[in-house]
Amino acid sequence: MIVDRISAIGDAAIEVIAADGMRGLTHRAVDRAAGLPAGSTSYYARTRAALLELAIKRMVELDQSDIDPAAKDIAEVLASTVHAAITVGRSRMLARYEFALEATRRPELRAAYDSGGLEIRELCVALLGAAGSTNPQRHARVLLNWLDGSIFDALAGTGSTNPPDKEELAEGARAVLNGLGIPSAQ
């Protein structure tokens, strides 16, 4: 029950940040968005910093649940991940951009933001290593840059008026993987 409530608060914080930016994030706004009684959010996250950290942890948890490390076709996994990020996960990505910008100004947030990002990077390194990458650390950086760029363009860039579908994303992922010398299907 407590885990469900904490997840609900994290989800609501993400939605508030995506809709209203960092300035709109308050304990009361999260209570309202989560449909919880007043004071619920502050019970689990006493300070704004604790609330921000809870939201970051929830984003990482959701990101990790979106990736299937046992998948046979890496390009399809990547395409599904990006497509989900620009459709059903749109709010999470918009909140992530807000966090990224805020982390450049607040060192205490930078540590939590970077920690979450490293967890995703390590998952990507492991996925590429299993696929036969000769340099999974370097290849993960290239691949994550493609992912980040594709998502940003589809949500906030000039590509937002005509975002790619899964097929186009899979083609792009295959091109990047081929360029790195990694077969897309395991």
Rank of each mutant, 00 (worst) to 15 (best):
V3P: 00
E171C: 07
S160T: 08
A100K: 10
A19I: 03
G24N: 04
G149S: 04
L147D: 07
Y97A: 04
G24L: 07
A55D: 07
Y43P: 01
V176P: 01
L52M: 10
R28K: 10
V176Q: 01
L62F: 07
A75W: 02
I2Q: 14
L94N: 03
I2K: 15
A100T: 07
R141G: 06
L54Y: 04
Q137E: 15
L127F: 11
V30Q: 08
I120T: 13
A140C: 11
E108D: 14
L54H: 02
A154V: 04
E167G: 02
A185P: 00
Y44S: 11
L78W: 02
D63W: 13
S150N: 11
T134C: 07
N135S: 15
S65M: 09
V125E: 14
I151T: 10
M59V: 04
D20T: 02
S40A: 13
S65G: 10
A55W: 01
R5P: 00
R92F: 01
I9M: 10
A103H: 03
P107A: 11
R23V: 11
E122Y: 09
E119F: 03
E108V: 08
F152H: 13
E119M: 12
T161G: 12
F99C: 04
N145K: 02
I17P: 01
L54D: 04
A71K: 03
A70H: 09
E53D: 14
P37W: 00
L123K: 02
L78N: 01
Q186D: 03
Y113M: 05
D20E: 15
A18T: 09
I14E: 13
V16A: 08
M59W: 06
R174V: 09
D73T: 05
N135I: 00
I74W: 03
C124E: 00
N145T: 13
I74Y: 01
P163W: 11
A79R: 03
N162P: 00
A85T: 06
L128H: 08
V3F: 07
E122G: 07
A75D: 11
R46Y: 02
V30R: 02
I74R: 08
